[in-house]
Design a protein around this nucleic acid. Sequence first.
RNA 1: GGGUCGGUGCCCGAGUGGCCAAAGGGAGUUGACUGUAAAUCAACCGGCACAGCCUACGUAGGUUCGAAUCCUGCCCGGCCCA
Length: 424
Amino acid sequence: MDLLVDLQARGLVHDTTDIAALGARLAQGPIGLYIGFDPTADSLHVGHLVGQLFMRRFQLAGHRPFPLAGGATGMIGDPGGRSEERNLLDVETLRHNVGCIKAQLTKLLDFEPGPYQATLVNNADWTASITMLEFLRDVGKHFTVNQMTAKDSVRSRIESEHGISYTEFSYMLLQANDFRHLYEAHGVELQAGASDQWGNIVAGTELIRRRLGKQAFAMTHPLMLKSDGSKFGKSAGGSVWLDPARTSPYQFRQFWVQCDDQMIGTYTKMLSLRPVVEIEALLVQHEAAPEQRAAQRALADELTALVHGTKAAEHAAQAAAVLFGGDPTTASADVLAVVAGEAPSVDLPANIEGLRVHELLLAAGIAKSASEVNRLLGQSAVRAGNRVLDADGLLRASDLLSGGFLLLRKGKREFLVGKVSTTG
RNA sequence: GGGUCGGUGCCCGAGUGGCCAAAGGGAGUUGACUGUAAAUCAACCGGCACAGCCUACGUAGGUUCGAAUCCUGCCCGGCCCA
């Protein structure tokens, strides 16, 4: 299927420069494309997946992706989408972040040598050595302040009460120069990004046209939003990260399983690598029985496997089965160990017969006081395995599950895993 | 500086000597219902060795058998006057 048609069917095309020319160029053969990711944190989050998978789609269609870690642009800070100036990150943090992000950028793309090989680049490599005078003559000269202040990202900041520093004002020029550099060094003809990057991206196509007299292309995809219009990628605990140390594979998968019905179609089309026809069939099935969450599960499994590997994805799915509705007493020790990784845990004495549950829940921070535990017990809200504890909250030896695990549950959602400590 | 009104639990807000761990609402927790949703309904919602006790109504004292409630000093906020 034609790549552009496919992207449009997925709702991934927000804006492009000269789409007819781009279509013609893609038809001629492989193209290089790049998307930049600034190292504002030491991990990317789910919002970045659209861009990463955007490149993957191009790669699968035979093109060469150039994921870019913004070692240089990260030092400046993109003024877009903000009302205030960013705090500058120190060099050490930045270096650390770039390292982490680079590792994540290599996960979803194919770096095996070959015609479609992905190439990881860092704009610090060609930006750090440019002198101020060179930059002003070679880049700055090609832009008028009039054009620059006309861009949305800059104009909204000029109109805001905080204004915009000269530093962030310059961001656009750095990004434009990146595109120019990649065009010359690697034949990268297309820069993509989220729709809020449009101004910065076309600054690059303009620079290439003025300085090199060549045509380059810009293409943006829509920003992913939640059904209420708020920013995508936040869950109760904060951002959903790609780094398993920050967001476990289980939590990552749960984030997708719990997606809004209203948005799941949009998300699946934008993110899944499955063919659009297949996705549409899935969505028909989902609408017939939304309670099955077939679409959510499919997307959750696919993305978890992509980001964390198939093994981790399977474990996450099994852990979810235990935690939601499944019978924990029949779960294997292996699966319980995965569950244990997701819940707060406490050590248990060798014999738990007659042990009060109060201290365990308090130690894990699941209840704030013994009174609260008593209240919960009175409301039949505490279970060990699937046995509802009596008002006295005493455990029995038979509450232990395979592998010496104790699964305590407060209400439906909160869990505590106890493990009998073994000496040796 | 003078006058005046006020400071109540996570938030808002009633209470003006005992019936006050303190109305009502919001938030939160749990249960029912459910799709690991929304809405709805119900219970709970300071602590503990829990038929009892302790701590708490800005803060420090006082009056009283008994104080969130009365008195005094202090701190903080609103308004009015200077």
